[in-house]
Lab assay of single mutants.
Amino acid sequence: EPIEAIAKFDYVGRSARELSFKKGASLLLYHRASEDWWEGRHNGIDGLVPHQYIVVQD
């Protein structure tokens, strides 16, 4: 079951695997890939989301 998150800041992906998004964007998170990253989805694209840039919705 994906988790919803909201972007705290704009983020520009630094590689093809990283998602880019704007502050306030809604993201879906699948699972924690590491301490710093989530596997997630934004605008229909799957990729990595940096933990420091999002607020996970409970």
Rank of each mutant, 00 (worst) to 15 (best):
K23G: 08
F21T: 01
I54E: 01
Y30D: 05
Q52C: 13
I45C: 04
E1F: 15
H31E: 14
E1L: 02
D10K: 04
H51K: 14
D46P: 15
L28N: 06
A7G: 07
S20I: 02
L48E: 03
K23T: 10
E4Q: 12
S20Y: 03
Q52V: 06
A7M: 01
E35G: 11
E18A: 03
A5L: 01
W37P: 01
G44Y: 12
Y53C: 12
G47D: 00
F21W: 01
A5T: 07
D58R: 11
R14H: 03
G40L: 00
D46N: 09
L27E: 01
D58P: 15
V49R: 00
S15L: 13
W37G: 02
K23R: 08
E35L: 08
Y11V: 10
R32Q: 09
R41V: 15
L27V: 08
W38R: 01
A33Q: 13
V49T: 03
D46G: 10
S34F: 07
E1G: 04
E35Q: 08
G13L: 02
N43D: 15
L19R: 02
S20G: 06
R41N: 15
I3H: 03
A16K: 13
N43V: 05
A33C: 11
G24T: 04
R41C: 14
E1V: 04
E39M: 11
Y11F: 09
S26L: 13
S34K: 10
G13S: 13
G40D: 00
E35M: 13
Y53G: 13
G44Q: 13
E4G: 07
A33P: 12
D58T: 04
P2W: 15
R32C: 04
L19Q: 01
R14L: 08
H42F: 14
S26Y: 09
D36T: 11
S15G: 14
L28E: 09
H31M: 10
V49L: 10
V49S: 01
L48W: 14
F21A: 00
D58W: 09
V56L: 07
I45K: 15
R14I: 11
R17S: 11
A5D: 00
I3R: 05
K23A: 11
G24R: 05
V49C: 05
V12E: 15
E35V: 13
E18W: 02
H31V: 12
K8D: 07
G24M: 05
W38Y: 03
E39H: 11
H42G: 11
L27G: 00
D46A: 12
W37L: 09
F21Y: 02
L28I: 08
S15I: 06
P50M: 07
D58Y: 04
I3A: 05
L48M: 14
K8T: 12
H31A: 14
E39T: 09
R14P: 03
A5H: 02
R41L: 09
S34V: 04
G44A: 12
S34Y: 07
D36V: 10
E4V: 09
S34N: 13
I3N: 04
E39G: 04
E1K: 04
I6Q: 14
A16S: 08
P50E: 03
A16G: 13
A25L: 02
I54V: 14
A5I: 04
A5R: 02
F9Q: 14
L48A: 12
S26T: 11
I54Q: 03
H42S: 13
L48C: 04
Q52E: 11
L29C: 05
K22W: 07
H31T: 07
P50G: 11
K23Q: 15
L19M: 06
P2R: 15
K23C: 03
R17G: 11
K8A: 10
G47M: 01
E39Q: 10
H31I: 03
A7W: 00
K8C: 09
A16C: 06
W38P: 00
Y53F: 13
F21V: 03
S26E: 12
K23Y: 05
A7D: 01
K22G: 09
L48Q: 07
E1N: 14
E18M: 14
S26N: 08
F9K: 14
G44F: 07
G24E: 11
R32W: 04
A7I: 03
L48H: 07
R17Y: 14
G40E: 00
I54M: 14
R17L: 09
G13T: 07
N43C: 04
L48R: 13
D46E: 05
R14T: 08
A25C: 11
S15E: 15
E35N: 12
V12W: 05
Y30M: 10
R17D: 04
L29Y: 02
D46I: 11
H42R: 09
L28H: 12
S20R: 06
Y53P: 04
E18N: 02
A25H: 14
S26F: 10
Q52R: 12
K23V: 06
L48F: 13
P50Q: 05
R41M: 05
L28G: 08
E4D: 06
H42Q: 12
F9Y: 05
V12C: 13
V12P: 06
G24N: 15
D10W: 02
W38D: 01
S34E: 06
N43P: 01
Y11I: 02
V12T: 11
W37I: 07
K8R: 09
A16P: 06
F9E: 14
S34W: 03
I54W: 11
E1H: 03
Q52H: 14
K23W: 03
K23F: 02
W37V: 06
R32K: 13
E18K: 05
L27Q: 01
A5Y: 04
W38H: 02
G24D: 09
Y53R: 12
G24V: 00
G13E: 08
V12K: 07
H51N: 15
V12H: 14
P2C: 15
D36Q: 14
A33S: 13
D58A: 12
H51P: 03
R14Q: 07
K23S: 13
L19K: 00
G24W: 04
Y11D: 00
D10G: 04
W38M: 02
R32S: 04
H51E: 03
S15N: 14
K23M: 10
G24K: 08
K8I: 05
I45W: 15
G44C: 10
S26P: 12
K22C: 08
S15A: 11
R17I: 07
L28Y: 11
Y30C: 10
D36C: 07
I6H: 15
I6W: 07
I54F: 04
S15T: 14
F9C: 02
K23P: 03
I45V: 13
L28M: 13
R32G: 02
P50W: 03
L28Q: 15
I45Y: 03
L29T: 01
G40Y: 00
N43F: 11
I45S: 13
I45D: 03
L48P: 02
L29M: 05
D36E: 14
G40F: 00
V12M: 07
Y53M: 13
R32P: 07
E4H: 15
R17P: 10
E18S: 08
W37C: 05
P2M: 15
P2N: 15
E39K: 15
H31D: 14
R32T: 03
D46V: 09
Y30L: 12
D36L: 14
W38Q: 00
H31Y: 12
E1Y: 05
E18T: 10
D10E: 10
S34T: 09
E18I: 10
E35W: 06
E18P: 03
I3Y: 03
Y30Q: 09
A33G: 10
V12R: 12
A25M: 12
G47E: 00
D10A: 10
Y53H: 06
R32D: 00
D36S: 13
V49I: 09
W38I: 01
A7N: 02
S26H: 13
S34M: 09
D46R: 06
W38G: 00
W37T: 04
Q52D: 15
I54A: 08
